[in-house]
Amino acid sequence: MSETPVVIEQHGHAPFLQHHFHTAEQQADASKIGMWLFLVTEVLLFGGLFVGFAVMQSMHPEAFFAAHHHLDRTLGLINTLVLLVSSYTMVMAVDSARRGKQRALMIYLLLTLMFAAVFLGIKYIEYSHKFHEGLLPGKYYSHAGDTVPGQFMFFSFYFMMTGLHGIHIVLGMAAITWLCFRARRGDFSPAYYTPVDMVGLYWHLVDIIWIYLFPLLYLIQ
């Protein structure tokens, strides 16, 4: 952090500058700090599930290995690619906002939204397949013909982890929709696009979590 005193600029109040900040830069920096801290809490929230998964997998390696065969690797891989592409479009949206390209911003936001919807669609196909086969968490597990017992535990984690991730995707879609409305209203400019930047960071985190979830759940060795 810089130790120099903040220069108080008395330029006319920009509409986006909140009263308790002196400069737009100060406001943007504060938002970035806040967002990064929030992302840290998200990592730790998922971290608990990852640790739980690791411990249970080490206790029941055969069951976890047997259970993961029920997952469709192709669909998982497609979804990974879809999210990666959506991260790219999100980067482009932030870049467009920074350059003041309103139309491109809108297009990239809508593209991101679309890829997110595709992800959820594929997830829906996967989920309904699991429901159909009785591959459900905990006491609702009713898959017939298992040779290795205890596979319900894997699906407990599969649904908790992908479910929590799915909720994050939905929240991200809501945030992107909100950005679309604000972008249409012309709120963003090269001087102020912090919300786009912040939602972008969030979206990358959601993407990264999936990058970890995919091999963890689909590619057990």
Binding site: L37, V40, T41, E42, L44, L45, F46, G47, G48, L49, G52, M56, P137, G138, K139, Y140, F152, M153, S156, F157, M160
Partner: peptide
């Protein structure tokens, strides 16, 4: 608050899951 609280958050959620779904953990 930032580094520890999310962990109790997920732990309590897991406890709720345990009670509702018997997830087993």
């Amino acid at each position: 608050q930032i580094l520890a609280t999310p962990v109790i958050g997920i732990t309590l959620l897991l406890l709720v899951m345990e009670r509702v779904f018997n997830v087993g953990i």
